[in-house]
């Protein structure tokens, strides 16, 4: 169906890109191990072991809408932030360094700037998916070790530790808010960062992304989608919160804008 060149360049990016960033994936497992340790430590207060969802809700719960009041500290939820930072570091510099160093040979063989760019977008999305897959495996591993591999969220646990009433959330919605929405939001942010790394430079794109994420935590506004993955800002945790459909639409718009904006820029970009 696809030409061998298309398959070749995508395979190149998936293999080389993921291999080149292996150490970053390993380092990025810190928040998942961290959440396992923290949740395990806190679970002594409860009669049952935490289930699969307790870990993910704790990781992605974030904070409710913040209202600035002098004397009240603004804090970015550290665990949630570390996940975003890890993703940003995985995407960081690979495409630009690849193009600067040996990209000429790959791009002339790809024979198409569009193909090269979309291959990098696919790499970015695949990196995010792989990162989350590693996280899921770690948490499943933790569940196996504790002997409770359950996909039913504990109401008491979540009310006390995560300020979330899971009785109001269906099982499918739980999968969406714990895995799918954070994954989608991370892909959108990664694609934005990818585009920024070509337009500006990897470091400035990284700084811009971090700034955008922090500002998104501060302001809960549709323009700032950086905090879309926060569960406590969803409609399930607070009235008037971010709706699932709204989050999905925003993420899709950002993904499309980043991919096509990047393509338009890269189409005219001189490689020298």
């Amino acid at each position: 169906m696809w030409s061998s060149t298309r398959r070749g360049i995508i395979k190149y990016d998936l293999c080389q890109g993921l291999r080149a960033n292996m150490w970053k994936f390993l380092a990025g497992t810190v928040p998942f191990f961290g959440v396992v340790m923290i949740v395990q430590e806190r679970s002594v207060l409860f009669s049952t072991e935490p289930s699969f969802f307790e870990y993910f809700i704790y990781l992605f719960k974030g904070i409710k809408n913040y209202t600035p009041v002098p004397g009240q500290q603004f804090e970015v939820p550290i665990l949630w932030m570390i996940v975003q930072v890890s993703m940003a570091l995985i995407i960081y510099d690979y495409p630009v360094v690849n193009l600067e160093k040996y990209g000429i040979q790959t791009i002339i063989r790809a024979k198409s700037r569009a193909l090269w760019w979309f291959s990098k977008c696919i790499w970015a999305a695949a990196s995010v998916v792989l990162y989350y897959a590693v996280g899921i495996l770690i948490i499943l591993g933790a569940c196996m070790l504790t002997g409770k591999i359950s996909f039913i969220a504990d109401q008491e646990w979540n009310m006390v530790m995560n300020e979330l009433d899971v009785s109001l959330i269906t099982h499918e919605q739980l999968w969406l808010i714990c895995i799918c929405i954070p994954l989608m939001s991370s892909i959108a942010l990664s694609l934005l960062q990818l585009t920024g790394s070509f337009v500006l430079s990897p470091v400035y794109s990284f700084l811009l992304l971090l700034s955008y994420i922090v500002i998104s935590v501060y302001y809960n506004h549709s323009c700032f989608m950086g905090a879309n993955s926060m569960i406590l800002r969803s409609e399930f945790a607070m009235p008037g919160g971010n709706t699932l459909s709204g989050i999905v639409i925003t993420n899709i718009i950002v993904m499309c804008a980043a991919v096509f904006g990047g393509y338009i820029y890269f189409r005219r970009h001189d490689i020298y």
């Binding site: 004397g71 500290q73 603004f74 804090e75 970015v76 700084l207 971090l210």
Partner: peptide, 27 residues
């Protein structure tokens, strides 16, 4: 002394500045 950035813990600017401080210093 309670208005400049260094005393505005309720604003995002102070938090952001000290999150990215190592990157700014290395740039």
């Amino acid at each position: 002394f309670n208005t400049w950035i260094g005393a505005s813990g309720h604003t995002y600017q102070l938090t952001l500045y000290f999150i990215i401080l190592p990157v700014i210093s290395c740039l």
